[in-house]
Amino acid sequence: MTSDNTILDIETASISFGGVRALIDINFSLAPGSITGLIGPNGAGKTTLFNLVTGIIPPDSGRILFMGQPIGKKPVHELVRMGIARTFQNVELFSSMSVLENVQVGMHTRTSCGIFGSALRTPGIVREENRSLEKAAQLLEFVGLGEHAKRRSADLPLGWQRLLELARAMASEPQLLLLDEPAAGLNTNETDMLGDLIESIRGRGVTVLLVEHDMALTMKLCDRIIVLDRGRLIADGPPRSVQDDEAVMAAYLGKPRNDAKT
């Protein structure tokens, strides 16, 4: 059921690929301003769920509501305009462009200059461009990359690339931010910094849904954890209770289960 108190509602969503059921009757809602962790063993369907929410693939059945509106078969770019942003598991920056330009691309949906506008370069367009430069610089400061604005994004070390992706995603002024393993490949220091950043992103009123294998980070950061296993939602609750859940232990440790053979 949709209520005013949710930003994302997933209602009995299922999808299968060539006979393999990747997600089965998934049901949950996200409260605005929450940080929710999505965990589960490899192949549990986390990435598929991300793909559903970002509109890359539509569910076979069930529906997904963002701010009360069904996202249906809206194209990916339309959802970004509505307020859903994401980062990628394997960092996908625009490698030929500078750090600053990468963030500016993130602002695509919040700017409007078209091909004629860019050619004419009217005062309005120049203002918009200056605003976008300014805001991109601010976002780079926010993630701590202010000094590296002019560098080519491909030349940054991996940890910084992840931060840049975060800044780029924030540039679209999202309501909902999906982070796909943001801490993968980061050292302890960088992971701590990332945790603080995500916390302050929530402070800006953004709802965060993240897939993460770093349990310490997930437990510390999230208000709530959803566990997927083989396409099913097997646990949903505050970190503490999920940690003690038997089904979760079984999923991770591989204890024999009744339906193991299916």
């Binding site: 194209p75 305009r81 996908e92 920056l93 490698s95 462009m97 695509h108």
Partner: peptide, 13 residues
């Protein structure tokens, strides 16, 4: 040019 998927995930049509 650099990545069509990432580009559409940035809201580019």
């Amino acid at each position: 040019h650099d990545g069509e998927h990432a580009a559409s995930a940035m809201g580019i049509d």
